[in-house]
Design a protein around this nucleic acid. Structure first.
Lengths: 320, 320
DNA sequence: CTGAAAGCGCTAACAA
DNA sequence: TTGTTAGCGCTTTCAG
């Protein structure tokens, strides 16, 4: 068996409680004693048994995160932020992929709940009520979603949409169409708000390559000169469809995305898009969770987005 | 407080031990009793406290996975397989990203070890000795790596390389160059073996877009007509560099990758590459871990790869 | 087949 | 400032 707190106590000539305190409430033991204990701890390589500690404190030292699609690079990036910040606090991260399915998402949270101190929900597809219910099970922090009484980290999509439209208009575009994402996605609705009726909405598509591919087909039937995709993955699908059908980007059609995933810079033409502070969002989410666990209030934190202009947008062909 | 085993025992009119047995050793209780207990369990929504159980059994019901770069879609795909299979067994998954750093990788395993029943190590960058040492801490399963005495899941890279070369030769290419990945990566060495001296090796590059971009620059200085990249991410970097420098693919140069990540089909030209059964590998890894925990021996399982021909390869310009 | 009781490793009163 | 003690929720002997 591994080394226990008793082994440390014996060797440091103190009681187990002193060892416990030296480790988790340093202020409560004499400095000299603490040092002696710490030395023994280091010497023996003692690591407190988490299960035992958890049994008493009710805290697990773990946190969970659920994302809708790990294969969308947007989410790994958030995950990195979460891992980084959690790691600093000695917290471990349980991860799950809901595969864009609300049922699965809720189920995953319920499964995780008993073994974590809280869950980060990314781009949740659940209803407000479902989220509120889950929040009773375990502290929740939402990323890109707002529900009353629950902490959130937002990457401003409405502003992002504003930037996109301002950019397109400065290029002389008058007709643009928004290729929508999942109707249940908060980000989609925020983008719609940012749109403020200035562009027509074209349906609701899967937020991935395939969805974009399908959307492009429909978009071509409009007389729009610019396609605004819900996210970069969709935009890549759009580019692919257009290339295959001999439509030149950006000469004939301008295309934009959201997220600024790695591939946005790598595809051809490189994508004009809205950059999101994903990794930062992950970190902030962990902070909000921590503050919540310390009895703090639910908080909403908004992070700025910015426009990244690349090669997929150009002056409107008919304009001056 | 949540409902405990006592609550169940009381309501089912049995002792706690009977409840415990009804749940974890069904054979040891009378069928009727078991049924009564199970009914109460369902009625109360009782879930055994993992920490308490873990304290006794020494098992955590968790498993860990460490990958070098979550932003390479290859790994999310493996993770999905792991999550799927683990979920079926009621096992939770801790995840970590080592950011291609061996030190970090080892540290992560050490941190995870006490809280998991085993760890899956993907494309490890550690030395054999380091891995052997870590295997003393917790059961290990390697993906794309072989170390004596440790279970592995392999996706056959040497075969993959054979397929690539056969393909290129059938197209009339004589001079091809291999743009190598990390020297510490087993996959890289396997691919090198598959190469069997039939192509020159061009250095060792970061296994990502940037690495490929840099590699392309050097590759152009050779007289090779085909570039074989260590992985798809690098191949994408190669495509990007070539496009920016006016080199036509596949008219002037053919390019291949490994992995068949999502973007291999989405880029332009779409990439000829070797498809890897990543999700399956994740599942098998969990199976091997489970069998190991049940006292089974270390096992090596090899999964087949296959060639996916797309638009980035073409007949050698000078050949008939 | 079932129950009583011990105890996993740790923290948190309560005493001293 | 430190030690003693009870007990977190569960599994597992050991009796019956």
């Amino acid at each position: 068996m591994a080394v226990t707190i008793r082994d440390v106590a014996r060797q440091a000539q103190v009681s187990v409680s002193t060892v416990s305190r030296a480790l988790s409430a340093p202020g409560l033991v004499k400095e000299a004693t603490r040092q002696r204990v710490l030395d023994v701890v280091a010497g023996l390589g003692y690591q407190p048994n988490r299960a035992a500690r958890s049994l008493i404190t009710g805290r697990t030292g773990n946190l969970g995160i659920v994302v809708p699609d790990l294969e969308n690079p947007f989410f790994p990036s958030v995950l990195r932020g979460v891992q980084t910040r959690a790691g600093e606090a000695g917290t471990s991260v349980f991860f799950c992929d809901s595969r864009e399915d609300p049922e699965t998402e809720a189920e995953l949270v319920r499964t995780m709940a008993p073994q974590v101190d809280g869950v980060v929900l990314c781009a949740s597809l659940l209803t407000d009520d479902q989220i509120t219910d889950l929040a009773d099970l375990t502290p929740l922090v939402l990323i890109n979603r707002i529900v009353p009484g629950v902490s959130s980290v937002l990457m401003d999509s409405a502003l992002g949409m504003d930037l996109v439209i301002a950019h397109l208009e400065s290029l002389g575009h008058k007709d643009y169409v928004y290729l929508g994402g999942p109707a249940a996605a908060w980000s989609n609705n925020r983008r719609l708000q940012g749109l403020a009726g200035r562009a027509q909405l074209l349906g609701s598509f899967e937020p991935n390559f395939t969805g974009g591919y399908a959307a492009a087909e429909q978009a071509l039937k409009t007389n729009a000169t610019a396609f605004i995709a819900y996210n970069d993955l969709m935009a890549l699908g759009v580019l692919s469809y257009l290339a295959e059908h001999g439509v030149q980007v950006p000469q004939q059609i301008s295309v934009t995305g959201f997220d600024d995933i790695l591939y946005a810079a790598m595809c051809s033409p490189a994508l004009t898009t809205i950059a999101m502070p994903t990794e930062e969002a992950g970190k902030v989410a962990v902070d909000l969770l921590a503050s919540r666990l310390d009895g703090g209030p639910a908080e909403v934190r908004e992070l700025p987005t910015k426009l990244v202009i690349r090669a997929s947008t150009r002056k409107h062909p008919m304009s001056a």
